[in-house]
Simulated scan of single mutants.
Amino acid sequence: MMSNPETSTDSHTGLWSRQFDPVHDFPTVPVNTKVALCTTPRCGSHFLGHKLHSLGAFGYPLEYLNPGNWEIWERRAGEMPTLDFIKSKRTGPNGVFAVKLHHEHLTDFLVQEPEPLTYKFIHLRRRDLTRQAISFARAQQTGAWISDMPEIAPAYYDWGLIATKMDHISRGNADWQGFLQCLGIQPLELYYEDIVADMSGALARIADYTDVRIDEAVPDAGTFTPERQKRQAQADWLARFEADSRDRLAKGDAIPGVSYPDNIAVLRHRARKVAKRLKARAGL
C-alpha cells in the first residue's frame, strides 16, 4: 500500500511525494504574476524549478498538471477547483505563481486554466538532444528522476528506447514553438547548458522577463536543491548511439528525424543502390 503522500519522505515513493507536503504551502495571497515553464523531459526543468523555489521569488514551480500529480492535488483540493487550490497553496508571498509544463500537459492545462494568455512563458531546452534523450531513457529504466532518488532497476543501453525519446523531445520542442508562435507569444528562450554555466545570469534574465523583483525576495535556505545527474555510462552510450545510428542510416533503417514510411522507403532504395554499386566494384 502506498504511503501517505503528504507525510512520507524517506522512501522512493516519499521522494516523489514530498512535493505535496503542506509544509511547502504558502499563506494564500492574490496572484499577480503567472509563469509557465515550457519544457520536455530531462531538459533541466526540475533543476531550474527548485532553484527558482529556493530563490524565494517564484512560488514553487512543479509539474502540477502531470496526471499522477493532479490526482493527488484533486484529493487535497476537495470541492475546490483543483488549479485554484494549487494557486492558493503554491503562490509565493510576492504573488508569483509558476508551473512547469511538459508539452503533453498542455491540453489539460488549457482545460483547467481559463486565462492561459495571462502567463509569461519560458521555453527551456537542451542543445544536446542526444544527451537529453539518453538521460530520459536512463531515468525511465532506473526510476531515478532526480539526484537523490535511488535507482530501483538497472540501466542498460537500448538504441530503440533512446531513439524514441529523441523523437519525443524533438516533437515536444517543435509543438511548443508552434503553440507559442501561432498566438504571437515571444517566450524567454533558455538553454540548460547556459543555465549550468551561469545560474545567476539565467535567474536575472528570468526576473527581468517576468518583472519579478528578486532583490527583495527572501531565499529559503532549507529548500531541497537537486544536483545534476552526470554518469560516465551516459557518455559511453552517446558514442555507441551515434555509431549505431550511422549504421542504421546506411542500411536504410528508421532513425530519429527519419521515421516516416515515405522517408524510410527512400532510404532503403538508396541503400540498395549503394550495395549494388559496391558489389559491382568488387566483381560480384
Rank of each mutant, 00 (worst) to 15 (best):
1 M>V: 12
2 M>V: 11
5 P>H: 08
5 P>G: 07
7 T>S: 15
7 T>G: 06
9 T>A: 12
12 H>F: 09
15 L>P: 00
17 S>A: 15
19 Q>P: 02
21 D>C: 14
24 H>W: 14
29 V>D: 10
33 T>K: 15
41 P>R: 00
44 G>F: 03
45 S>V: 03
46 H>Q: 09
47 F>T: 03
47 F>Y: 15
49 G>N: 11
49 G>D: 08
51 K>Q: 15
51 K>E: 14
55 L>I: 05
58 F>W: 04
61 P>Q: 06
62 L>A: 06
62 L>Y: 06
65 L>S: 01
65 L>A: 04
68 G>I: 12
69 N>D: 09
70 W>I: 03
70 W>V: 00
72 I>E: 07
78 G>K: 10
82 T>F: 01
83 L>T: 09
83 L>R: 11
83 L>V: 08
84 D>Q: 15
85 F>S: 02
85 F>E: 06
87 K>L: 06
94 N>H: 13
96 V>Q: 01
97 F>V: 09
106 L>Q: 07
108 D>F: 05
109 F>I: 05
113 E>N: 04
114 P>Q: 01
117 L>W: 05
119 Y>G: 03
119 Y>N: 06
119 Y>D: 10
121 F>C: 03
121 F>R: 05
125 R>G: 00
130 T>F: 01
132 Q>T: 03
133 A>E: 00
133 A>I: 00
139 A>V: 01
140 Q>T: 02
140 Q>E: 11
143 G>E: 09
145 W>H: 04
147 S>P: 11
149 M>L: 07
151 E>P: 01
152 I>S: 06
156 Y>T: 13
157 Y>H: 14
158 D>W: 02
159 W>K: 03
159 W>C: 03
163 A>K: 00
164 T>L: 13
165 K>A: 10
165 K>D: 03
167 D>L: 01
172 G>S: 05
172 G>N: 08
179 F>T: 04
185 I>S: 07
187 P>I: 08
188 L>T: 05
189 E>G: 03
191 Y>K: 01
193 E>W: 04
193 E>H: 04
195 I>P: 02
196 V>R: 08
197 A>Y: 06
197 A>C: 06
197 A>P: 02
198 D>S: 02
198 D>V: 05
200 S>I: 09
202 A>V: 04
203 L>R: 11
205 R>D: 12
209 Y>M: 14
211 D>Q: 14
212 V>W: 03
214 I>W: 14
215 D>K: 08
216 E>P: 04
218 V>P: 02
218 V>D: 08
222 G>H: 13
223 T>C: 12
228 R>P: 11
228 R>G: 10
229 Q>C: 01
232 Q>T: 05
233 A>Q: 07
233 A>V: 14
234 Q>G: 00
235 A>H: 04
235 A>E: 10
235 A>G: 00
236 D>N: 13
238 L>T: 10
240 R>H: 01
240 R>D: 00
246 R>K: 15
246 R>D: 09
247 D>G: 13
251 K>F: 12
252 G>S: 13
253 D>V: 00
258 V>I: 13
260 Y>I: 09
264 I>P: 13
265 A>K: 14
265 A>E: 15
272 R>F: 10
275 A>W: 13
276 K>T: 14
280 A>N: 12
283 G>N: 13
284 L>T: 10
